[in-house]
């Protein structure tokens, strides 16, 4: 009993502390500060773009993992989940080595298009997507595996091509899984810190997202940091509430 309660306190106390120390009286004013709004806007935009990016690439990847068999599928599956356990900073360094100005691909991008990703908003999106994609892929793959594949067979006997069957039958069936995966992916992207600061830097208005702003504010204006943290906490609670049917309601 005691360790259980201790565990609960350990998890809840910091959040409670955040609420207790929050400068409620000046909250509205601080929220309206251009820097805060700028960081918030940037965070929302990049997290949403990163989620879109993950959906475009992650759903087909999940489909491939769930519905096809090819040699090395298990290895691919393991590789997809690496960013889940990899320290985000390492992810940022890895991105820098590949897409940086002197990176393997970045070098070519620079010379061919005069285009460089690090320390840009696009770089933020990439860093967030790199870290958040596994959440989406795993969620969608699970949904695809759970969906009865024979519905696709039934569609085929009715004259549906593979693509029609996927679009009109499979996709609607796994829509809840995709939604859950996307929400999770978005929340992870919103909170991304390590990979973002390593790969995209910390330029207000361009690459300074909320978590970065929190970190920076903590040294200069602790109260601003608390306010920003509260906003992120509120977003987390909303995400959790939207997924409550799947995650919170246990057996």
């Amino acid at each position: 009993m005691v360790p259980a309660v201790a565990g609960l306190v350990f998890l809840v106390l910091p959040l409670a502390g955040l609420l207790v120390r929050a400068p409620w009286s000046t909250l509205a004013g601080r929220l309206a500060e251009p820097q805060v709004l700028e960081a918030l806007r940037l965070s929302l935009v990049t997290a949403s773009l990163a989620t879109l990016f993950c959906l475009l690439l992650g759903v087909p990847l999940a489909w491939m993992l769930a519905r096809t068999s090819f040699p090395g599928r298990r290895v691919v599956r393991a590789l997809v989940t690496v960013p889940l356990v990899l320290p985000p900073v390492v992810g940022g360094v890895a991105l820098l080595l590949v897409l940086g100005r002197r990176g393997l691909v970045g070098q070519w991008l620079e010379s061919a298009f005069g285009f460089s990703l690090p320390f840009t908003t696009a770089g933020v999106v990439l860093a967030e997507a790199f870290v958040a994609m596994p959440f989406l892929v795993i969620s969608v793959e699970g949904a695809l595996r759970a969906a009865d594949q024979r519905f696709e067979e039934a569609a085929a006997t009715l004259g549906a091509s593979r693509w029609t069957a996927f679009r009109r039958v499979t996709l609607p069936l796994v829509a809840p899984g995709i939604t859950a995966g996307a929400v999770l992916c978005w929340a992870r992207a919103l909170g991304e810190f390590g990979a973002t600061i390593t790969f995209a830097g910390n330029f207000p208005g361009r690459t300074q997202t909320m978590p970065l702003a929190v970190y920076l504010a903590l040294e200069t204006e602790p109260e601003a940091a608390i306010v920003l943290s509260l906003v992120l906490l509120a977003v987390s609670v909303i995400v959790l509430a939207s997924l409550r049917d799947r995650w919170v309601s246990g057996p």
């Binding site: 067979e153 085929a156 593979r162």
Partner: peptide, 19 residues
């Protein structure tokens, strides 16, 4: 392929599209 065959099939548990 199955989708081009002039067939109609009734499955054991019907497999009506639930959505």
């Amino acid at each position: 392929p199955a989708e081009s065959r002039p067939i109609g099939m009734v499955f054991q548990d019907y497999l009506l599209f639930p959505h």
